[in-house]
């Protein structure tokens, strides 16, 4: 009974926290943008505009849902959920704190520590692409279709390098479980041993979450909104929550693989974890405010001809180092 309660509590705290954080990322993004562009940003709703995401949520909920007449209605309605569910589920294997004692039981602060953790995240990311592709196809309109094709091609190409960039850490740690990888960084974070891997990861992470300078799928100057052009109301909101959730999950993966996860001096582990994730998120926003967009052929060429060979090189070098130095 106690175990069941603890599991329920973990699920509520984990997913509730993730959704709340995703909502507040919209606020943070607008404030950071305003800061960089020397504006004020949203500051009317609540202190420093802190209630803005909630106001936005209520507004979106009351908007009319518009479904295009030519759309495939079943798929059109289902597609946003197909993106959101894997984006949420992927977070389940990320450890967000050390184990704590609740009601006399030792509780690991991770929703599910499975022994193929990182592969599970990739599986979920792979399923999430369907939401984008199906949504763009079901809208039955030109811009979404082109945006959807672009994002699917981009996600598939960069997923390879993303996986390869993490392989070095997996080889050093000797485990695929994210909890085991955090345990392996008791001495020093893996960013020291894997500087190239970290760089590759950050670039692939930007492309994988469709963020600037790789945000071609939603290049508003040429494609209006990209795959979600036809979406409105809550369906649109679900897409954007899913996007922020996968950004947070990938930030958390980066923090776990390279920056030592929840480890850190003085402050409690959960706080350290949040600081590292927010640092990644700030980096996302900073880049979006300061970089222009790539051209599409440059993007694909860069992924296949630069990133992939570099990440394979990183894997070979790491394998050699693990075998000969240990």
């Amino acid at each position: 009974m106690v175990t069941l309660l603890i599991i329920l509590g973990k699920v509520l705290v984990g997913f509730g926290g993730l959704l709340l954080l995703a909502a507040y990322m919209t606020w943070m993004e607008r404030r950071v943008f305003a800061l960089i562009q020397v504006r004020v940003g949203p500051n009317r709703v609540g202190p420093s505009g802190l209630l803005q995401p909630i106001a936005d949520g209520i507004k979106l909920m009351f908007k009319e849902t518009i479904i295009p007449a030519q759309a495939d209605k079943v798929i059109y309605v289902l597609a946003p959920a197909v993106t959101l569910i894997p984006a949420l589920a992927a977070f389940a294997v990320v450890p967000f704190g050390d184990s704590v004692t609740v009601l006399g039981q030792k509780v690991d602060l991770v929703l599910a520590d499975i022994n193929v953790g990182i592969l599970y995240i990739f599986a979920m990311a792979g399923i999430g692409v369907y939401g984008i592709v199906l949504g763009s196809w079901a809208s039955n309109s030109k811009y979404p279709l082109i945006g959807g094709l672009r994002s699917a091609a981009q996600l598939i190409s960069y997923e390879l390098s993303l996986g390869m960039s993490l392989l070095g850490v997996v080889m050093i740690a000797g485990t695929l479980s994210l909890k085991g990888i955090v345990e392996g960084q008791a001495g020093m974070p893996y960013i020291v041993l894997q500087p190239l891997g970290f760089l590759l990861f950050v670039v692939c992470m930007l492309a994988e979450t469709n963020r600037a300078p790789f945000d071609l799928p939603e290049a508003e100057s040429e494609l209006t909104g990209g795959f979600h052009t036809e979406y409105s109301s809550m369906h649109f909101a679900v897409y954007s929550i899913a996007e922020y959730c996968s950004m947070i999950t990938l930030s958390a993966v980066g923090a776990t693989f390279f920056l030592g996860g929840w480890r850190g001096p003085l402050l409690p582990p959960v706080v350290w974890f949040l600081i590292k994730v927010l640092a990644f998120m700030f980096f996302f926003m900073w880049l979006r405010a300061s970089t222009p967009r790539l051209r599409y052929d440059q993007l694909m060429g860069f992924g296949w001809k630069v990133l992939l060979p570099l990440s394979i090189l990183n894997v070979i070098l790491t394998a050699g180092a693990v075998v000969f130095i240990g």
Binding site: G126, V129, Y130, A152, I156
Partner: peptide, 14 residues
């Protein structure tokens, strides 16, 4: 899931 349900089926879908 990674290979069949996502990679290969994505090609079919395309």
């Amino acid at each position: 899931v990674i290979i069949y349900a996502s990679a290969i089926m994505m090609l079919f879908l395309f």
